[in-house]
Simulated assay, not measured.
Amino acid sequence: MRLMQPVIAVTGSVGKTTTKEMIASILSTQFTVYKSKGNRKTGHSLQKPKAASSVAA
């Protein structure tokens, strides 16, 4: 598939929604921006990180 407009994709395990919103905010000052609504959190992304003291050495 070839798109006529530039596309920016954000990947990773932490901070995608914040990064997406920041990029959209900055680019929207000069361009028309289309972005997904909200986020798509899955069960594993909602887990609280373990404290360093509770991790086995």
Rank of each mutant, 00 (worst) to 15 (best):
residue 25 S to N: 13
residue 49 P to Q: 00
residue 9 A to T: 15
residue 21 E to K: 01
residue 53 S to C: 11
residue 13 S to A: 04
residue 40 R to H: 04
residue 42 T to V: 12
residue 10 V to G: 00
residue 38 G to W: 07
residue 23 I to D: 04
residue 39 N to P: 01
residue 36 S to K: 05
residue 12 G to C: 03
residue 15 G to Q: 01
residue 24 A to R: 01
residue 21 E to I: 06
residue 42 T to N: 15
residue 34 Y to G: 14
residue 54 S to T: 15
residue 47 Q to G: 00
residue 55 V to C: 01
residue 32 T to A: 01
residue 15 G to K: 04
residue 56 A to K: 14
residue 16 K to D: 09
residue 11 T to S: 08
residue 17 T to C: 12
residue 53 S to L: 15
residue 56 A to H: 11
residue 1 M to Q: 14
residue 22 M to C: 08
residue 4 M to D: 09
residue 44 H to R: 05
residue 22 M to G: 06
residue 45 S to H: 06
residue 39 N to L: 03
residue 32 T to Y: 03
residue 48 K to W: 05
residue 5 Q to V: 12
residue 7 V to L: 12
residue 44 H to N: 12
residue 46 L to Q: 12
residue 1 M to F: 13
residue 3 L to G: 11
residue 37 K to P: 00
residue 33 V to D: 07
residue 5 Q to R: 09
residue 23 I to H: 06
residue 16 K to R: 05
residue 55 V to R: 13
residue 13 S to K: 04
residue 23 I to M: 08
residue 20 K to Q: 02
residue 19 T to V: 04
residue 34 Y to M: 11
residue 46 L to F: 01
residue 2 R to P: 00
residue 47 Q to D: 02
residue 53 S to M: 15
residue 12 G to W: 10
residue 54 S to V: 12
residue 22 M to A: 15
residue 54 S to L: 11
residue 4 M to V: 01
residue 13 S to D: 00
residue 5 Q to M: 15
residue 24 A to F: 00
residue 47 Q to K: 10
residue 55 V to F: 03
residue 25 S to K: 15
residue 31 F to V: 01
residue 6 P to K: 03
residue 16 K to S: 07
residue 9 A to G: 13
residue 31 F to R: 05
residue 43 G to P: 00
residue 34 Y to L: 14
residue 49 P to M: 04
residue 19 T to S: 12
residue 52 A to W: 08
residue 43 G to T: 00
residue 18 T to R: 06
residue 56 A to L: 15
residue 56 A to R: 14
residue 49 P to K: 00
residue 31 F to M: 02
residue 2 R to H: 09
residue 47 Q to F: 12
residue 32 T to M: 04
residue 4 M to C: 03
residue 31 F to H: 10
residue 2 R to N: 14
residue 9 A to S: 13
residue 57 A to G: 13
residue 26 I to N: 05
residue 57 A to N: 15
residue 46 L to D: 09
residue 6 P to W: 05
residue 11 T to A: 07
residue 14 V to G: 01
residue 13 S to P: 06
residue 57 A to E: 15
residue 1 M to P: 02
residue 4 M to G: 04
residue 37 K to F: 10
residue 53 S to I: 15
residue 54 S to W: 06
residue 34 Y to K: 01
residue 3 L to Q: 05
residue 22 M to E: 02
residue 5 Q to T: 06
residue 1 M to D: 08
residue 18 T to P: 02
residue 41 K to N: 11
residue 6 P to I: 00
residue 31 F to I: 03
residue 46 L to H: 09
residue 26 I to H: 05
residue 6 P to H: 00
residue 1 M to R: 15
residue 15 G to Y: 00
residue 16 K to W: 11
residue 50 K to I: 07
residue 36 S to Q: 13
residue 30 Q to V: 08
residue 10 V to E: 03
residue 11 T to E: 07
residue 21 E to Q: 01
residue 23 I to W: 03
residue 18 T to D: 08
residue 37 K to Y: 05
residue 33 V to L: 07
residue 47 Q to W: 10
residue 52 A to V: 14
residue 37 K to N: 06
residue 6 P to M: 02
residue 38 G to P: 06
residue 47 Q to H: 01
residue 27 L to G: 02
residue 52 A to H: 09
residue 28 S to Y: 04
residue 4 M to I: 09
residue 30 Q to C: 06
residue 24 A to E: 07
residue 29 T to P: 03
residue 40 R to V: 10
residue 39 N to Y: 14
residue 14 V to Y: 07
residue 12 G to Q: 10
residue 15 G to H: 02
